[in-house]
């Protein structure tokens, strides 16, 4: 495992809901992330897919140390990532960056692009002397496909795609090893989305950055990821190399998820595999397998025994009693 840039084991994040004092019930717990292992080999992209409420965003925030996990360990760049605190953590943050869904929200409306990027450089003493500063920022902007004139502008003067390019410039300014992309292209228009996806893969080729690409959009993940993990209600239910996962999904949830994605080709074969029902809530999970209430393959054992992640082939694991083969 020496080649892993990031390895998280047994990550758990539970939220305790406030108990109503007049009700005699035990405190309810939201199991947002409920025992997840993630490995990101250096220079690769791991895709993390799932529907809303499956815990994928929380997982990203745990890795970014924006939230403290309830349990679990994270090793990042060979070091105990959760042991870092205070100034030590702040300095180490330069290696792990983030790109969020909402580019406008992730830029301070009262700061110019130059201030935003300059601040990131200054935080890690990477700011060149006064004269070189504008050049450095222009160079960063160029590397994300923006002209130097953007530096003087405020976020509300830019288009959605330009804003996301600015947040990417801020991230790569500190020369990170790893970027968590949380729905990084989901809010963008279709034509712009493709530009940003291309930019992300170009940057990976040029700088050797690893990505955790969190998205509800499976097609985007297929395009970018080397490995894909599928989350359902706080757990990873399947993980496989991207090609294999999309060609031969094993978990019934993955199968249904893939079938549900509409394809921009009316002639494409349609697999009728619609799931019934809604996502269960993460507060009171069913016994056994979390997916069994919506699962077309559910049997008696599924209600009794929670299936562990088991290897089906090399690098392909699924948590199901009756996986598709």
């Amino acid at each position: 495992m020496a080649s892993d840039l990031l390895a998280a084991t047994g990550l758990v994040r539970h939220y305790r809901l406030r108990r109503r004092w007049w009700r005699a019930e035990p405190p309810r717990i939201v199991r947002a992330v409920d025992g997840v292992n993630v490995r990101v080999p250096a220079g690769t992209t791991v895709g993390l897919v799932g529907e809303s409420g499956c815990g994928k965003t929380t997982l990203g925030r745990l890795l970014l140390r924006l939230e403290q996990p309830t349990a679990g360990e994270i090793t990042f760049a060979g070091q105990d990532w959760l042991a870092k605190r205070g100034e030590q953590l702040r300095e180490a943050r330069k290696d792990m960056q983030a790109i969020f869904q909402d580019p406008l929200g992730s830029l301070d409306p009262r700061a110019t692009v130059a201030q935003v990027i300059g601040e990131a450089l200054a935080a890690h003493g990477m700011e060149p002397a006064k004269s070189g500063r504008a050049d450095k920022i222009a160079e960063l902007l160029r590397s994300v496909g923006l002209g130097p004139d953007v530096a003087r502008r405020y976020p509300n003067e830019l288009s959605g795609g330009q804003r996301q390019r600015v947040t990417i410039a801020r991230s790569i300014a500190v020369q990170p090893k790893f970027i968590v992309c949380d729905e990084a292209v989901s809010a963008l228009d279709v034509s712009v989305q493709a530009q940003i996806i291309n930019l992300l893969s170009d940057l990976q080729d040029a700088l050797g950055i690893s990505y955790l690409f969190i998205s509800h959009n499976l097609a985007t993940v297929r395009h970018l990821a080397d490995t894909v993990a599928v989350m359902y209600l706080g757990k990873v239910v399947e993980r496989a190399p991207a090609g294999e996962l999309f060609a031969a999904p094993a978990h019934p949830y993955t199968v249904a998820l893939l079938a549900a994605v509409p394809v921009p080709d009316p002639a494409a074969p349609r697999i009728e595999q619609n799931l019934s029902g809604d996502l269960h809530s993460a507060t009171d999970l069913p016994s056994g397998c979390r997916f069994r209430l919506r699962c077309p393959r559910a049997a008696e054992i599924c209600a009794q025994v929670e299936p562990p992640l088991e290897a089906l082939s090399d690098g392909h694991v699924a948590a199901c009693h009756f996986p598709h083969r």
Binding site: A219, H223, P264, D265
Partner: peptide, 12 residues
Amino acid sequence: GLIRAVPRIDID
């Protein structure tokens, strides 16, 4: 352009 810009789930 719109059709071609979307990543596809059904083909590599």
